[in-house]
Design a protein around this nucleic acid. Structure first.
Lengths: 105, 105
DNA sequence: AGTACTATGGTTAGTAT
DNA sequence: AATACTAACCATAGTAC
């Protein structure tokens, strides 16, 4: 072997909890946002579906992903119905796509 | 070995293009939507940020992910500004979070 | 329409630039 | 704030239920 010494320890297992070290958090955010958007992109292609994502960064910048490209396309159809709060929102979901499937955290 | 024969071939490399076989597409959608939402969930926790996702399924059902849980929280702040089309939308993004970062497909 | 299985393909932590 | 690096951790294709 040229260099028997490993250059890095490789990916380490982590607990899913907030990273406190600011520099690490920034790096993690950049990579994970990229990963999320790539997955979303693959989903739109592989399954031929519409996806819209909004992410607010640690620095309070807003990042968006949308296919169709104009994020509005999916979201704007909601704006009229969303005003009334959750009840109206759920009703919109029904109007939009029939049966409603939700995944909230 | 109890059974030297492998039960599956394991994950296979695929090209990122639309799956035509309906049954395979449904399975892929279920798994990839789950994966996307899990990644989104981890992002909210690990980086302490807000994320909202809307996905329209192959069967035209709408699936949503949101943290904060009421997807409105992030989206509703957009509804007033979105009406005016992309120009207004971009302006909203600026108002919302300062510098705008976009990732469109 | 969702879950279980498992080997393999793919993502990413920690660090440096 | 984003990218390069590498080993280790994780997601998932294809199939059956």
């Amino acid at each position: 072997m040229e260099n028997p010494k490993k250059k890095t320890l490789g990916r380490r297992k982590i607990e899913i909890k907030k990273i406190e070290k600011k520099s690490s958090l920034q790096v993690a955010f950049t990579k994970r946002r990229g990963g999320l958007f790539r997955k979303a992109s693959e989903l739109t292609v592989v399954c031929g579906v519409e996806v819209a994502i909004l992410v607010k960064s640690p620095a309070d910048k807003l990042h968006s992903f949308g296919h169709p490209p104009d994020v509005e396309a999916l979201i704007s159809r909601a704006e009229e119905k969303i005003v009334g709060g959750m009840e109206q929102y759920l009703k919109f979901l029904e109007d939009f796509g029939g049966k409603v499937e939700e995944n909230l955290r």
